[in-house]
Design a protein around this nucleic acid. Structure first.
Lengths: 202, 202
DNA sequence: GTCTATAGCTGGATAGAC
DNA sequence: GTCTATCCAGCTATAGAC
């Protein structure tokens, strides 16, 4: 009757360790310790490190995509839609600040394997479709002012990059967590205003 | 008489391997193979993997900072300065596309050690000073419109993030290298226009 | 300086008792 | 299901010949 419980604890521990250390840096021993069990049991539930990692990675990737997807609300105006996206996605990332760097760096570690894994899943289909329609909307609305791909990149960049560069930023400047939180909170408004101004028509 | 030559080959090989695999994923054997020598010689030149890594990491970090520094040209107008920065930094990154992800992910792997290492170097002092004065300039010029920290973040994000997310983007969409190059080339103008518009006064 | 050979350890994986 | 004990491959690092 401990089945579900143990499996969950393993997943939580594995997630923590893999996110912190990456695949190569992670140790099964550390995962076991954190989960309060021993190594053998890890292999009982997930035959190998590779398999355990796959489960965790795909879960995290899925969450990142769902975060993206859920940030696209249905709105009549593309402008409102865009502003809602900035708000929601930054909020999502504040709750899961380590996800983007983990996903991006682990994909770049081995892009081909990632592509293989993607094929077997339908995970990002939904998100992908929404992103494309968003870009198409942007293009219809602002295509004469700006290339929509770049506009999309600009928005994503401004939302995501701060979370990716935080460790480095934190190391260089002595910015504490409370300050960081405020900074990200105010960031929502700043980015919205910045984008709105850049897209104003005259 | 082969000293310098061998040492250089080792460094180049180590750089390639560490950048691709990270510290934990890198193998001394792979570095040796790539350098056309054997493992023992690696240890002859650099006593341990850790030491070799330190040398490489600090070199790359230094280059990233120098790239940042050299992109700040002296100009009378802050607007021209900013546009020159966008141009130059994207150009730098096009020549070294893997640097940002490597630096950022390796720092986050172990921020404390990084901070320790930084203390012994004066590397980023120069870049740091220039960045601060840039932010101060931005603040004087646009402080009423926008928080300068966020403005700085916006610019850096839009320049750097595309290179960090490229592996993921490339995996999801089938964008080839030639297209990518064109995209980044046009990006310079797009980002400049985007920022300029966002900062227009009325 | 450069090589071959090997020591010594770490860490993923399995056997087998309970 | 969960544990202890152990195997064994892979890796860093060193010894020692040339």
């Amino acid at each position: 009757m401990e089945e579900k419980d143990t499996e969950l604890q393993i997943k939580e521990a594995a997630r923590t360790v893999f996110m912190k250390r990456g695949y190569a840096g992670a140790r099964m021993q550390e995962i076991a310790d954190l989960a309060g069990i021993n190594k053998a049991l890890l292999h009982y539930y997930y035959r190998s490190k590779e398999r355990l990692y796959d489960v965790i990675f795909m879960e995290v990737f899925q969450e990142l995509m769902e975060g993206l997807e859920s940030a696209f609300v249905e709105e009549d105006s593309i402008k409102v839609k865009m502003e809602a996206f900035i708000d929601l996605y930054i909020s999502t990332l504040m709750k899961n600040p380590h996800m983007p760097l983990f996903v991006v760096s682990e994909i770049s570690r081995d892009p081909d394997t990632f592509i293989e894994k993607l094929k077997t899943k339908e995970i990002f289909e939904g998100a992908n479709k929404i992103v494309l329609s968003f870009i198409s909307d942007l293009n219809n609305e602002y295509g004469e002012q700006l290339n929509a791909i770049h506009l999309f990149m600009n928005i994503i960049s401004m939302c995501v990059f701060p979370f990716i560069s935080k460790p480095m930023l934190g190391a260089i400047t002595q910015i504490d967590d409370a300050t960081w939180k405020i900074l990200m909170e105010t960031r929502k408004e700043e980015v919205k205003r910045f984008v709105a101004k850049a897209l104003e028509k005259r």
